[in-house]
């Protein structure tokens, strides 16, 4: 896919700056650490180096990754891999002042912040749970396993080592 942000159109840099400002405004409490400007500060993801794949890759391809996983889960019964939608929700869901999870598709939350801005309808949450509730399997560590991007194996491994207990697998609710 072409990266349109780096095309040499006059005024492109101004547009990028404006976009960034809009993102920050929309996402509310974001942690601008350069790893994920759109990650909700109170989420588990805010404390991690990168997503299950490098951030740039995820920004462009998360939908493909989720769609692939969906068939693996429905037909193959494999629910524990790092690309599961429940993993996305578990890691990216924000928490309010009372430490209660906020629906991930609520206004200004992780999914909607970008999807509203880009005017792309997402319908995952017509059916899927928007907060971690009633998980039935152990989520593997988000940065474990083989990367979809060549040459980032070491990065993922390093992230696993450094992230440590920050993203320990959730205990079973049942």
């Amino acid at each position: 896919m072409r990266d349109y942000r780096f095309t040499t159109v006059p005024g492109a840099s101004a547009a990028v700056a404006l976009t960034a400002l809009l993102w920050l405004g929309l996402a509310g409490t974001v942690q601008a650490t350069g790893i994920g400007d759109f990650v909700v500060g109170s989420s588990k993801a805010a404390g991690l180096e990168n997503c299950v794949e490098p951030t740039e890759y995820m920004r462009r391809n998360h939908m493909e990754v989720i769609r692939h996983q969906r068939d693996t889960t429905v037909y193959g019964g494999i629910r524990s891999t790092k690309h599961s939608l429940s993993g996305c929700v578990e890691c990216h869901v924000g928490y309010d002042d009372k430490h209660q999870p906020v629906a991930i598709d609520d206004d200004d939350q992780f999914c909607s912040a970008c999807h509203d801005y880009a005017a792309v309808t997402l319908n995952c949450f017509d059916c899927h749970a928007t907060v971690p509730q009633g998980e039935a399997w152990n989520q593997v560590h988000p940065t474990m396993g083989h990367s979809l991007v060549p040459g980032v194996e070491t990065q993922a491994a390093a992230a696993t080592a450094s992230a440590g207990s920050a993203a320990a697998p959730e205990s079973k609710t049942r």
């Binding site: 929700v89 059916c127 899927h128 749970a129």
Partner: peptide, 16 residues
């Protein structure tokens, strides 16, 4: 009808 509360292990939505 649209279901407000869903469990992670049991997705459920209108029209299926």
């Amino acid at each position: 009808e649209q279901v407000d509360q869903k469990l992670t292990r049991a997705p459920r939505g209108k029209g299926c």
